[in-house]
Design a protein around this nucleic acid. Structure first.
Length: 600
RNA sequence: GGGCCCUUAGCUCAGUUGGAUAGAGCGUCGGACUACGAAUCCGAAGGUCGCAGGUUCGAAUCCUGCAGGGCCCGCCA
């Protein structure tokens, strides 16, 4: 619709150029066709005249008149056009046109809202990627929901999306996990075998080990997979020979028992689980580094010791190490690829991982990370550039911290509470729909207060309710119509004759704006726009309903034609609610469950 | 000390990527139900868009500086 308007104006400018009334450059200048917030300014405001004023050497309003003279509205779209303010051209469309456009909602059904701004571009969205060393916390949850909604929106917007979870199952933390599990397994084993003798290995958890209670649960599940003799052999020590096996099994248990169930509850599915360990096993890390080396971005040099580590000078000089020259791409330090002990750094794995993503043919990479990883972005972008791709082939969405509130107070003082509280607790507490709505109703780059009490409340204050309410109410009215014996609503051209209330026109416009909202949310990578759209549409709907009631203009009345038209409008709206909620991954209920009144 | 993010009504937040008179919810005040869902709606009050410059026809939006808050600054992952 907007594009039609744009084309009509572009054609007019073209004609003016052909007649020499505007300079040739005028035809290539971009102009905006936006919807004014003030309804008096019509349906669309075109700023072309103001953009071209300087070029034409004439005042904007004069240019506007000139453009208007060449306007050719063949379809009869425009009800009126006028020059206003500093030089806007305000365009009002024929109201019936909007009503007729509602036909698209029925035709496109669950695809209504899909657009093609992505043009089939292959994009890999990497999100969650919580370490497989423990349960997900609330902070992970926000990233998970944001990434998932973004993936849904990008798909709807015509991108070819792959959702991927990067499992960090290599490196020191996994060793720590294995050791922690092993030590806990020994404790558990001794409970039933008091006489067991453990010859070698640590018996106490070390500084870097995982001390959470959940490690015992992991240990129990891992042990359950072992035979009696095997158990004895593994636990008697030493630890090292069994390290990799325990690590592998523990990671699998954590994924299966602590991470996948939470994702499942949230309705999040991945197309692909990518294991960091596979990059090491397949020598992809070596190959990626060699590739960078060939391009001249890797060198051996001596780095200053990391903070908190002491090292004497002589030792340092003996130890030049492999370093990626990320400063050449604007990073503030060159980044080591190998540690002092010769093993690869996490970053080396990540270089290989992103190299691999590009090799797989993704021209656009979107990573959803916690804001605390912000400092890590420049070096990965540097790696992307070193591989010969533009820096913005990688977009990193940094999701800000979550602050849990209960009784109006932060759940934990000091650090952000979201990084301590388990996601599963929150899911059990308020349910997946509430979790998703709360995580999606704020811009991802702003901190979020999650009021647990509010999310559970059954009131208008709870945004979850309002987000779902519109859909439920449409459903309710349509049920009523069925009870009244009315036929299933469908599109008919005559509807335009009956849907003449200003509120009905507003609703139709809003419904038809949905595809543009999706396009905007996709382009800006901002899922929260969908939430606001749903809330606004619901508010318009409520308004319509109340006004109708007051004026005796109900949806279902004795006037069958009018009822049919209004029910069609309601059906379109229900479809849009359902599609929008689908993009958010929030359920679209047919009815709101209402808690029993007290004193019943 | 350096980098990234945030700062809009009393509170929580939007603001269509630079458009016309900056919006919504909550809260406050005042209204509307013998019900197509009142879990709702209508109206009012409430603003130096953190501060100061700059860019231009035009700035909450872009550029610079400053202030306040958050996150980060490892041969951890």
């Amino acid at each position: 619709m907007r594009e039609k308007v744009r084309r009509i104006f572009a054609d007019a400018i073209q004609r003016a150029v052909a007649l020499g009334e505007l300079p040739p450059e005028a035809s290539s200048r971009e102009f905006a066709v936006d919807t004014p917030r003030n309804p008096e300014h019509g349906d669309f405001a075109v700023n072309a005249a103001m953009i071209l004023a300087r070029l034409a050497g004439k005042p904007p309003r004069e240019v506007a008149d000139l453009i208007l003279r060449h306007l050719a509205d063949d379809e009869g779209l425009f009800a009126s056009t006028e020059v206003a303010g500093p030089g806007f051209v305000n365009v009002r469309l024929d109201p019936a046109y909007f009503i007729r456009e509602l036909r698209r909602v029925e035709e496109e059904g669950e695809r209504f809202g899909c657009v093609d701004v992505g043009k089939g571009e292959r994009v890999l969205v990497e999100y969650v990627s919580a370490n497989p060393t423990g349960p997900m916390h609330v902070g992970h949850g926000r990233g998970a929901v944001t990434g998932d909604a973004l993936a849904r929106i990008l798909s709807a917007a015509g991108y070819d999306v792959t959702r991927e979870y990067y499992v960090n199952d290599a490196g020191g933390q996994v060793t720590a996990l294995a050791r922690s599990v092993w030590i806990r397994a020994r404790e558990i084993y001794r409970e039933t075998h008091p006489d067991a003798v453990f010859a070698e290995g640590p018996t106490e958890l070390g500084e870097d080990d995982y001390k959470g209670e959940y490690i015992k649960d992991v240990a129990r599940v891992v042990m359950a997979g072992w035979g009696e003799k095997e158990t004895e052999e593994i636990l008697s020590g030493p630890f090292e020979p069994h390290r990799d096996r325990i690590a592998r099994e523990a990671v699998r248990v954590v994924l299966r028992e602590m991470i996948e169930p939470d994702l499942e509850k949230l309705g999040i599915r991945f197309d692909s689980w990518f294991f960091e360990s596979s990059l090491h096993e397949s020598k992809a890390v070596e190959r990626a580094i060699e590739d960078l080396e060939r391009r001249g971005f890797v060198t051996a040099k001596v780095l200053p010791p990391p903070k908190g580590f002491e090292r004497d000078e002589s030792e340092a000089e003996d130890r030049p190490q492999l370093v990626f020259l990320s400063t050449q791409f604007g990073d503030d330090a060159d980044r080591p690829l190998r540690k002092a002990d010769g093993s690869y750094t996490y970053f080396a794995g990540d270089v290989a991982y992103h190299w691999n993503k590009l090799q797989r043919g993704y021209s656009r990479l979107i990573n959803v990370w916690g804001a605390d990883h912000g400092g890590y972005v420049p070096r990965v972008k540097a790696a992307i550039q070193a591989m010969g791709r533009p820096a913005d082939a990688l977009e990193v969405i940094l999701v800000q911290m979550v602050n849990l509130l209960k009784d109006g107070q932060p759940v934990k003082m000091g650090k952000r509470s979201g990084n301590f509280i388990r996601l599963r607790w929150l899911l059990d507490e308020v349910g997946p729909d509430a979790v998703r709505v709360f995580f999606l109703m704020r811009r991802h780059d702003a901190m979020l207060d999650f009021d647990v009490d509010l999310a559970r409340e059954q009131s208008r204050d709870n945004p979850v309710f309002y987000v779902q309410y519109g859909h439920a109410r449409c459903a309710s009215i349509l049920r009523k119509a069925v009870e009244a014996g009315l036929p299933r609503p469908g599109y008919r051209p005559e509807h335009a004759k009956y849907l003449t209330m200003p509120e009905e026109l507003e609703l139709a416009k809003r419904i038809l704006a949905f595809p543009e909202i999706v396009a905007g949310a996709a382009k800006a990578r901002e899922p929260h726009r969908i939430v606001f759209f749903v809330q606004e549409l619901t508010a318009l709907f409520q308004h319509y309903y109340e006004v109708g009631k007051r004026q005796g203009e109900k949806v279902i009345s004795d006037d069958l034609e009018k009822s049919a038209a209004r029910l069609y409008l309601i059906a379109c709206m229900k479809r849009v609610f359902a599609n929008a909620l689908g993009l958010l991954g929030v359920s679209a209920p047919e009815r709101m469950e209402r808690a029993e009144e007290e004193g019943e």
